[in-house]
Every structure is written in structure tokens, then in C-alpha cells.
């Protein structure tokens, strides 16, 4: 594993090793001295061509806890806004000696382009590309689910998960479907037909249009943000109707079975896909997802940067 571009590139074993490593990282971060010397002298660039709070800060915190140097680079306020190409940006980063680039980009495939070309030699980590994938988010979601419902198992065998809302524009949903099913979970997508992607019938998931019908039979409800900024046409009549049919409210919360948990990748549109009571309820693990995000990203950075990835593990 040299880059982290897509969940599709990960084997089940590699995914589990990320989750296990994250578990140890969480423990190591639980001591008075949070900083580990592991990546001292490494330079990690956060290249964010799209807005982000959580992911950027989370990767930054993870890198700093492992003692790497972090350079933050956002499109706004950089030469990218003057029209500099991805290639020129990458070559600049290479010239500065970046060991890894964490990239978020509005164009699907931008991280893969960066990894495949010879513009730079460091590791590339996809922190969300267009509507393609967001692998670190899926890994932290799987980590959170395993922690709550895994009962000590290494995978998510038999856990039933509903992913609800704007699947069409969601890279989080795509990465999660790939990862959660790879780990043995049963995934149901719940969305209005207009917000489901073309070809969803070929995905290894069930599809439901009635949120209320699936509530009682799931262990995890993962709400997705309605991505208004990506919507150039009308996908549902109005916000009130969307919340009525696909929003998580207290009435729906009550129908969940006792051990079920509520997740959201953030940022939330409170009042649209999730009500404040649901987001702040005891079932909600939304804040914990953020905490786990740092541990999972420490694990990703450790596995990609600490060792020599050109040597096969176990050799």
C-alpha cells in the first residue's frame, strides 16, 4: 500500500489492519504525552482545493501527533486561484520535499492523477475527490461501528447499516458501501430515487425508498448531508418534504432498537436531514466519529509513511 486513493484498492486484510492500528493509536493518544516521535522529519502537505473543516484539521492533528511537519495549502489564497495547474502545484510540492500529499479536490480522480503521474514521488492520500471517494471517512466510520457493535470481532459481519439521504453526490456513501460490505456488513441505501446514482442496482446493497420501513431492522443509521452546493437542478420538491420523508427526527429515533447508533459524517444541515434532538441524542456517535477520525488518520499515515512500503509486509 503506497497510496490511499480508493477503498476499492484495499483488501479486506489491509482494511482490518488499518482499523487495528487505529485502535492502538487511540490507546497511545490516551496517555498524558500525546505526541509520538514516529514520523519526525517527514513533511506532509494538506492540499485542499475544496472547503473542509473536519478532514483537514483531523489529518493535521494526526500528522502532528506523529511529529510530522505539516504544510497547509488551500486553493483560496494560493496560486491555484490564479489558475495554476495541478501538475505545477504537484511539482512545486515535490521540489519542497513533501513525503505525502493529502489531497481534497472537486474533480473525481484528481488524487489518482497525482499518484499515477511522475510529478511527485510521495504518498498520495485521497481526502475526498468530487463525487468519487472519501476513503479515510469510510475507515473511521467502520472503526466507530466496529467499536460499538463489533463485539470483539475483527470485521462487521452481520451488522445492518442504513445509509440515508443524498447518495448521488456522496463520496462518503461510495467509500462506505465498498468498505462496509467488504467487511461483511449488510448495507441498505435509503433515498429518493432522484438522489440515487445511475447503476446503483449493480452495487452490493439493498435499496429502499421508505425510511420508516427500515428503521426497526438496522443497527446503524448513517445520515448523509444534502449537498446543496452540488445540486444544479431540483432533486426534491422542497426542504420540508425532504425532511418529512428522509430526515431523522425524534419519532424515527424512537423506532430504532435499543443498541442502534446514529452517525453523520458532518457537516450537518440541522433541521434538514437530521433534527437537533437526533444529532444530540444519546444514540448519536457523531462527535465520537471526529475523535476516531484522528486515530484512524494516524493509522493511515503510519502505515503509508513509517515503513518502507516497497517491501512486502512479513518479508
Amino acid at each position: 500500500m503506497k497510496h490511499l486513493l480508493s477503498i476499492a484498492d484495499l483488501s479486506r486484510e489491509e482494511a482490518i489492519s488499518v482499523l487495528d492500528t487505529a485502535m492502538h493509536m487511540a490507546k497511545a493518544s490516551d496517555t498524558p504525552m500525546k505526541k509520538l516521535p514516529t514520523l519526525r522529519g517527514r513533511t506532509i502537505v494538506n492540499l485542499f482545493a475544496e472547503d473542509s473543516t473536519r478532514t483537514r484539521i483531523s489529518f493535521e492533528a494526526a500528522a502532528k501527533r506523529l511529529s510530522a511537519d505539516v504544510i497547509n495549502f488551500s486553493a483560496k489564497g494560493s496560486s491555484v486561484s490564479k489558475g495554476e495547474s495541478l501538475k505545477d502545484t504537484a511539482q512545486t510540492l515535490q521540489a519542497m520535499g513533501a513525503d505525502a500529499v493529502i489531497i481534497r479536490h472537486g474533480a473525481s480522480g484528481a488524487p489518482a492523477r497525482l499518484a499515477d503521474c511522475q510529478w511527485m514521488s510521495g504518498a498520495v492520500i485521497n481526502a475526498g475527490d468530487g463525487t468519487h471517494e472519501h476513503p479515510s471517512q469510510a475507515l473511521l466510520d467502520a472503526f466507530t461501528i466496529r467499536k460499538h457493535l463489533g463485539q470483539g470481532r475483527e470485521d462487521l459481519q452481520g451488522i445492518r447499516i442504513a445509509i440515508v439521504g443524498d447518495v448521488l453526490h456522496s463520496r462518503v456513501a461510495r467509500s462506505n458501501v465498498l468498505l462496509l460490505t467488504k467487511l461483511g456488513a449488510h448495507v441498505t441505501l435509503v433515498a429518493p430515487p432522484t438522489l440515487l446514482p445511475v447503476g446503483v442496482e449493480s452495487w452490493p446493497v439493498s435499496v429502499a425508498y421508505d425510511f420508516d420501513a427500515v428503521l426497526e431492522s438496522v443497527d446503524v443509521v448513517m445520515m448523509l448531508r444534502v449537498q446543496l452546493e452540488r445540486m444544479s437542478e431540483l432533486f426534491f420538491p422542497n426542504a420540508r418534504e425532504y425532511s418529512r420523508y428522509f430526515g431523522l427526527n425524534s419519532a424515527r429515533l424512537k423506532k430504532l432498537h435499543p443498541g442502534a447508533i446514529v452517525m453523520h459524517p458532518g457537516p450537518m444541515n440541522r433541521g434538514l436531514e437530521i433534527t437537533a434532538e437526533s444529532a444530540d441524542s444519546a444514540r448519536s456517535v457523531i462527535i465520537e466519529q471526529v475523535t476516531n477520525g484522528v486515530s484512524v488518520r494516524m493509522a493511515i499515515l503510519y502505515l503509508l509513511l513509517a515503513g518502507d512500503t516497497s517491501i512486502e509486509a512479513g518479508a
Binding site: H24, M25, T38, L66, Y302, A306, T309, A313
Partner: peptide, 21 residues
Amino acid sequence: IDTTLFRDDLRMKAPRALMPT
């Protein structure tokens, strides 16, 4: 006590799995 994260020879070997502390 797991020492992996504190080793100075990590870069010379394949990525190592962490152990519990």
C-alpha cells in the same frame, strides 16, 4: 510496552503492525 512507534529503523523495513501497550 510496545516500542514500534519509537523505533529508529522503521523506514528500513516493511510497515509493522502495532502491538498492545
